[in-house]
Amino acid sequence: MVLKYAIVHEWLTPKATGGSELVVREILRHIDAELYALIDFESTNPESYLYQRSIGTTFLQHFPFARKGVQKYLPFLPLAIEQLDLRGYDVILSSSHTVAKGVITTPQQLHICYCHAPMRFAWDLTFDYLGSSTMGRGIQGILTRYLLHRLRQWDVLSANRVDYFIANSKHTATRIWRCYRRRSEVIYPPVNIERFTFQEKKEDFYLTVSRLVSYKKVSLIVKAFNELGRPLVVIGTGPELKKLRELARPNVQVMGPQPDAVVEQYMAGAKAFVYGACEDFGIALVEAQACGTPVIAYGAGGATETVRDIREYPDTGTGLFFWAQSELALVEAVKTFEAEEGNFNPEMARSQAAKFGPTIFEKRYLAFVSSAYRRFKSREAL
């Protein structure tokens, strides 16, 4: 029997190029599946690997300005994802960080969700989003809080539609348990380490690459380096770009968005890669290590699973952590890094990054899907 697979992702647009999209791309390399999303503007993009592919979408596809992101239509996302008719498939593979796991299936269909995170704006980042947006104040704020309350209820309800969860890190597995009381298998996402050039000799600058939004804590990094006076390069775009350029002193260069080739060049040449956010996985941290570049990161979330602190692992360390999201903690971490700089071996960083390569993801993911289907069918036969 040849199984029919469907993959469901949140949105497919030219600006959606993060870790979750890389997971979808890797799954499609190995599983012959039909693809569905809330919106799709990649199948008409000649530069996309999805160009001219048939992709199922929802009514949001036709909403004004949907191409720039459907987040503005947040109240409609649960309703929209539930309109996808997937009855013709044996196995549903959702790639979810917002609502993709909420598709409706039948008892005869196996649903496996690769969860990048429970929707962060509705759970642990609720107050960050409310505090940084005008939607969090006044009458609007009351309505927004009610909307988030209803989203949390739907989010928990829709988790019951999933037969098996896969988490992209132990940190995410903990969040899945906390939000949904569901256990999950940890399978780290694929990182294309071959894309990055290993460079042993480093230049005299620090680097951060990130979306420039408040929870990424890039302003914290800029302020710390303003104080340190060390050269820092900031690459990325987002609503905080203008603010960061105004904040930066002459030793801090805020470059804004850059092509992949430029990012790869700076990643390989940096003295260290600096990161201040608590990430569910943190693909950029692995990419930096693939270049042989050590990492200075906030010691929480997925970073603790991908970076080895040289103070704990003197022979195989690939970076070091700071334990508070504060300028003082980061300043002290940079000074500690510079004292330890000669002890870092770039080869160790490259070896650490290799643990998260696509081949490892392929083997673990395909084995899990196969095992889950056998368990599902055996229960069905009881």
Rank of each mutant, 00 (worst) to 15 (best):
Y373F: 12
T293E: 02
V8I: 07
R25E: 14
N226I: 10
T318F: 09
V222M: 10
E362F: 10
G342P: 00
K363E: 15
R308H: 05
K377Q: 12
K101H: 15
V234Y: 04
T134Q: 12
E341D: 08
D260E: 14
T13C: 04
Q83R: 15
I166R: 05
I39A: 15
S20D: 01
L22R: 15
P75A: 00
Y215A: 12
A224W: 04
L366Q: 04
H111G: 07
A33K: 13
I142P: 00
Y298R: 08
V331E: 03
F225Q: 11
D155G: 02
Y129G: 03
F356H: 05
P239N: 15
P250Y: 01
Q52I: 01
V24D: 02
K271S: 08
R183E: 13
E332V: 04
R245Y: 00
Q199S: 12
V103M: 06
R120L: 03
F273K: 08
T316A: 09
S95W: 01
V222K: 11
I27A: 11
K201I: 06
S95H: 08
R182I: 00
C113D: 13
Y5L: 08
L38K: 10
F361V: 03
K216G: 05
P250N: 03
A300S: 14
Q108C: 02
E227F: 01
V70A: 08
G229F: 07
N192D: 13
A37V: 01
T144I: 01
Q258A: 15
R145M: 11
L143F: 13
L50H: 11
F127I: 01
E240G: 03
T316W: 00
M1V: 05
T306S: 12
T134S: 13
V191G: 01
L328K: 15
V218L: 07
M135S: 11
